[in-house]
């Protein structure tokens, strides 16, 4: 076992769990699943700078540092993912409060008649 294996397997497990939950029928597990996928993606992007221990990108006169660029990209991605989660949660909540259930899939009836309930737009 190496550090690389640890990180790679963690990415894999987070992805698998995220995918499974995203394919559930209710909004809450889907949101949790997306969050897990976000972890996986962020860690993957971060790891694309390769794993380095004890070499933070703070200039101190050392010979080598870890790659700072993926860190900067992931930092904003983490903050943005909060915004994204919040919007998704809000939409899910609005749908739940408005319709009264928190299913992610459209009603069978709506699926067959796409224009049902919609005004005829002349």
């Amino acid at each position: 076992m190496s550090m690389e294996l640890i990180v790679a397997s963690a990415i894999g497990i987070l992805t698998a769990a995220g995918l499974y939950l995203v394919m559930r029928f209710r909004t809450f597990p889907v949101i949790v699943g997306t969050s897990l996928l976000t972890y996986a993606v962020n860690v993957f992007l971060f790891a694309s700078g390769r794993l380095v221990v004890n070499r933070p990108p703070i200039l101190t006169g050392a010979d080598t540092y870890t790659d700072p660029l993926p860190q900067a990209l992931v930092l904003t991605a983490i903050v943005i993912s909060f915004g994204m989660t919040a919007v998704a949660v809000m939409i899910a909540l609005g749908a739940y409060l408005g319709v009264g259930d928190d299913r992610v899939n459209a009603d069978e009836r709506l699926r067959d008649e796409p224009d049902a309930g919609r005004e005829d737009r002349a």
């Binding site: 990180v7 894999g12 992805t15 698998a16 499974y20 790891a47 390769r50």
Partner: peptide, 20 residues
């Protein structure tokens, strides 16, 4: 769903491992 998820996870892990 579990099968799809596990396959996806294995692929993500494999890719990451080779990359790293």
């Amino acid at each position: 769903d579990g099968t799809v998820a596990v396959v996806g996870g294995l692929m993500a892990a494999g890719l990451s491992y080779h990359l790293l």
